[in-house]
Design a protein around this nucleic acid. Sequence first.
RNA 1: GGUCUCGUAGCUCAGCUGGAUAGAGCAGCUGACUUCUAAUCAGCAGGUCGCAGGUUCGAGUCCUGCCGGGAUCACCA
Length: 616
Amino acid sequence: MNFLYPQNVISIIYLNHTNTGWKHRATFNMEITQSIKEAVAKAVSELYQHEVQESEVQVTPTRKEFEGDYTVLVFPFTRAAKKAPPVLAEELGNYLTENVDDIAGFNVIKGFLNLVISEAYWAKFLLSVAAQEDYGKHASNGKKAVVEYSSPNTNKPLHLGHIRNILLGWSMSQIFDAAGYEVKRVQIINDRGVHICKSMLAWQKYGEGNTPESLGKKGDHLVGEYYVVYNNEEKEQRAALEAAGDCDGEPQILQEAREMLRKWEANDPETRKLWATMNGWVYAGFNETYKNLGVSFDKLYYESETYLLGKDMIEKGLDKGVFYKESDGSVWTDLTDAKLDKKIVLRSDGTSVYLTQDLGTAQLRYEDYHMDKSIYVVGDEQDYHFNVLFELLKRLGESYADGLYHLSYGMVELPSGKMKSREGTVVDADDLMQEVVSIAREESLERGDVSGLTGERQEEAWRRIGMAALKFHMIRVTPRKKMLFDPKESVDIQGQSGPFVQYSYVRTKSVLAKAGDWDIDISAYQTPQPQEKELLTIIRKYPDTILEAAKNYDPSLIANYAYELAKSYNKFFHDVPILRAETEAGKGFRLTLTQVVGRVLTSALDLLGIEVPERM
RNA sequence: GGUCUCGUAGCUCAGCUGGAUAGAGCAGCUGACUUCUAAUCAGCAGGUCGCAGGUUCGAGUCCUGCCGGGAUCACCA
């Protein structure tokens, strides 16, 4: 931070500004589009005696091939005004030019009213942004959001699919934070069940007492290997049974796994001890992976502690008529009127199912946090489940039901086909991260040593670059779409990529470092270039983009925004001299612009969980 | 079969509540480093927005139907 614009500088500008016209507004409104909307609404009201909402007025940046900065669409008002679009546009244009101080002129093409913003506006806007250290972030709205993500099973290490989940979850939580929410990050750990017992059993049979320490291996990987061992064994036994003509028989090892689960549920000390030990190995491994991914959690829920929850909600639902009892004692719900089917919620022996458990955990979470929004980051194969879950909570009359959202994302596919964790054909999260960083290292070395960094600092830069490539690549795709994961493209560091955005940031830092300290009055700068206007137009969108991303639960909007800004800065950087600007005011303007761009890029990348390197 | 979801350039993806001649990147071809970082910039080439109707001043965007891919419709989680 080289300097801060004191508030009074801006006040002086306001003062000059108000002397010359726009009487409806006492202070300079940073939001030029908002001013335009208000003025258009007012104009339509005054000129044609027709009330319109500001939100009905569409203002967009003018397309490059036309003259002007912002464009108003007049089509929506033609009926009320009873005028042809060009005539109406002409009249509105005159009104706006006369009444809005920052509008210097206009032109009309068909029904499009292109407004030309005054040259003085841009410096004012830039100053107002520069005065805000955390520009783009919204003040607290007093609401609370809980984001649940990752939610792994403890029988295998994290893989590519989890990475998409984790990155989306983390980014979403960052975005909600920036949008003004108080955010809590949680995960529910699926730490019990037959699948957990399977790896326990295989380790017990074939593990020979090996531990992560004795083998020097990450705990989650070790446990995952025994899960594969189990599945291979089961497959062999099944094949043997079929060869013997017994197609309905159950493999011995599966029966043993079931038996182990029974013991676990009966609190058998031996089984519980093994379970605790092996889960401990897995947690240590997960924590390492989470740390490398740069994510964290405020609270962990363990399924072993929550899987019996939800029964009291069944009671409540029976009273309300949401559920009904079958003759065998099982409890069901009928959601056919909501295009959902009949679902069981309690077995005839009184035990609960997945759905029941989730009803209970939703309740528990609300008791813990009293959140306004609860976001579940879970793959789209569970769309149906969440539809049912949310519908039930609504019917049960839970106050928090409206704030529930399933952030559903598509499967990650590999060029070679689907991943199957049972068969071991997965892209391991740890391997992938390592790979991506080592490619960043190679690429960097190939380019020669331009960064000037050495040792640990260089290693850290490579790590950030590699991780940026991976993260950006996964977040830039709209969540609901399934995505093809091409390993080659994921480590791409040019074009539409994380490192591309980082590079722009590094450039801003480099220029600012060369500039040293400066203190220049930029309000005299009256000749903004097209490249500068474009950058400022993009910068203006940042706060809106954050809200949009939160509203749509879509981090990809931020990724695409960051790319757009970086691209625009690169062009500016190439075309326009900064340190050797024609005038002092110009130099100050461009340095300030550079500083603001650097800040917004860092901020946007931070929302994606991406860190910036100091050099590259 | 029911429900949901996706279909935009050779490939991977944008396209905000409907708005002007549908945009990027990669791959291909061509230019630009004695200059604030060329991990960059500029240009060329590449598209019946799955198909057919409808709504409207205007549809890639909304509605209906079809075609194709995926998911789901467990007393598993």
